[in-house]
Amino acid sequence: MSATEEIIAAGPAEPARETPFRRNMRAFAANPLALGSAVVVGLFILMAIFAPLVAPHDPADTDLLRRLQPPAWLPGGDWAHPLGCDALGRDILSRIIYGARVSIFIGAAVVLVATTIGILAGLAAGYLRGWVDVAISRFVDILLGFPYLIFAIGLMAMMGPGLGNIILALVYKEWVIPCRVVRGETLAARELEYVEAARAIGASRGYIMLREILPNILSPVIVVSTIRMAHVIILEASLSFLGLGVQPPTASWGAMVADGRAFILQAWWVSTFPGVAILLLVLAINVASQGLRDAFDPRFHE
């Protein structure tokens, strides 16, 4: 008898087996490209948060003497305005730094709200099944039938511009994506025995959905949400480019690209630098989320 006790007390000889989440994060950290991209994204976020400390000038300060001043390394440029100035003589670097606030804030807000709605709707559809599932799934199908950007443009035209309205216009359709992911994962999870065990104990449906199922399906949702953040940033830039986004004088990358259109031949830098900023951030988010997806996909572990 004492032998049993001894062995059971000692437990498995490998007590430090790590949780799946930690194993995934280690796999992520082992991918230098993805890790580098995550660092770039982090720098953008820091830049947005500390914009007043980082930016050399006030982004709204106009100086008509410096209209379309070229970047520092071109003739006529100076290091006070490293990336040059726009048509109103505002410092492009400072506007890009402040513009990051708009892009990242809208991207994060839209994804956060949409993911929350998507999780709740997806859990309800996948776990409750029946008419709830039919109603939610049909609604999702209908929304997917509209082209995203045109849908958002229509909504913005109806509601008028403004930060809150942009977020609303994008969330309107964005929640569909996490919803479908969560519904699929929930359909699989509801058949698992630990979910059945919770039912057998007498746990309520809300408890089972939020406490038993949700924590176990969160990883794929997080991966999808980060990928979607890049899309939302592009959409926001597109709306601002069309003049339906954040209104001047607030700096927004999409609006800056639009502002530079008229001078693209004389002063290419006005449009190009904000464009590069969009490209860089979106690319970094995409590469980082790809790495995240690979790390979280068990097929990539041997």
Partner: peptide, 30 residues
């Protein structure tokens, strides 16, 4: 209330326990 009196033990010792709960939470839930 009836579920307290009727219980089930499952086949699969891997699928029947929520991987994100400690043993104390799992056994304490009922």
């Amino acid at each position: 209330a009836m579920r307290r009196r009727m219980q089930i033990i499952f086949q699969d010792p891997y699928a029947s326990l929520n991987p994100r709960r400690t043993v104390g939470e799992i056994v304490g839930l009922p």
